[in-house]
Design a protein around this nucleic acid. Structure first.
Lengths: 188, 188
DNA sequence: GTCTATACCCGGATAGAC
DNA sequence: GTCTATCCGGGTATAGAC
């Protein structure tokens, strides 16, 4: 099989297993077994298990990193940011799962990323919470981010791996509602 | 040191490390080191690493399981359910983190729980989504559950480990907003 | 209840033939 | 590009003295 295809298949298999069993819970033998080869064959395509994880996440994380770069300079609204997050998660159910549910794996490759995963989350929350946020605003920012990730994953499962337009709108609306400062009822 | 105290200390240390590094990412040696003993000493108090995880989660999971039992028979509203989830998460930042972010660890002890973690999540979502839910209702249920867990964790971090009343109210409000079906603007 | 020492296994990784 | 064979380290767990 041509090397590029095999490399791609390894990445697909790894994405699925990492999402299901976690990164540390998945062995090289698991991947090789699914691929139908021995573990040694894997090392022709990737120098290490970590390299597979990086090969999987580097692209999406660079995209996300660029998104964050555009925040300071640009005119992005929270809605733009949440939409972008939803679309990134929608790109791959597996990657979104790893990103959302395996922080330990992310931390393991932090040093080889353009910025640390903690930093990216912090910047995202800061952008969602707005300038000089109080505790309530920070809580709402966390809520909105959680919705964008978790509800997108749920929608992907409902849609058989694809995110329907109506579902995307529903996720975004839910995230925006959780982000919105509730209207205070004025004292009578 | 009296056995009960040591056992308790082990659980506390394990909770913190499991939350920070994940279950598989934490070694018995890590726990023993933090405890100031050798790994062998740990095995006087717990027969296995899994037993530590179970000792940690069995109580809260039983509580959550009872909560779900009460749903069918009782008159619980989504608000009651979300409040209960928030309070369970607020009980221990560490346990909530494990529960939310380490599904692989939960799956590992599934067989020894009153019901599987997947089953518990499914029942929770069903209760939040209401009878005969459409896709949109299921998405909103997922959103609300994600808010209850993630925003509570955020609030605990903001509050130094405790959940202030105002913060609890903010989390619940955000979860309820994400759950609420948006009012449809009637065609003119 | 904790120690020293160690058995045992498993997972990541390498060497070298084909 | 994939194989067989193997090394090596680290992690769980045990034996038995103190």
């Amino acid at each position: 099989m041509s090397p590029v295809d095999t490399k791609q298949r390894i990445l697909e298999i790894a994405a699925e297993l990492f999402a299901r069993q976690g990164y540390t819970g998945t062995t090289i033998a698991d991947i090789a077994g699914e691929l139908g080869t021995t573990t040694a064959a894997l090392y022709y395509h990737f120098p290490s298990k970590q390299a597979i994880l990086i090969g999987l996440l580097a692209g999406p994380i660079r995209a996300y990193s660029r998104l964050l770069d555009g925040l300071d300079s640009g005119e992005s609204t929270p809605q733009d940011l949440l939409t972008a997050i939803i679309d990134i998660c929608a790109d791959s159910r597996e990657l979104a799962t790893i990103f959302d549910r395996d922080p330990a794996a992310l931390a393991m490759i932090d040093s080889q990323l353009p910025r640390s995963s903690a930093e990216m989350t912090a910047q995202t929350l800061a952008a969602l919470a707005g300038p000089h946020p109080g505790r309530a605003a920070l809580i709402r920012a966390n809520a909105a981010l959680a919705v964008a990730k978790a509800a997108t994953l749920a929608a992907l499962d409902l849609g058989g791996g694809a995110l329907a337009d109506a579902d995307r709108a529903e996720v975004l609306a839910a995230a925006l509602r959780s982000l919105a400062e509730p209207v205070k009822t004025p004292a009578p």
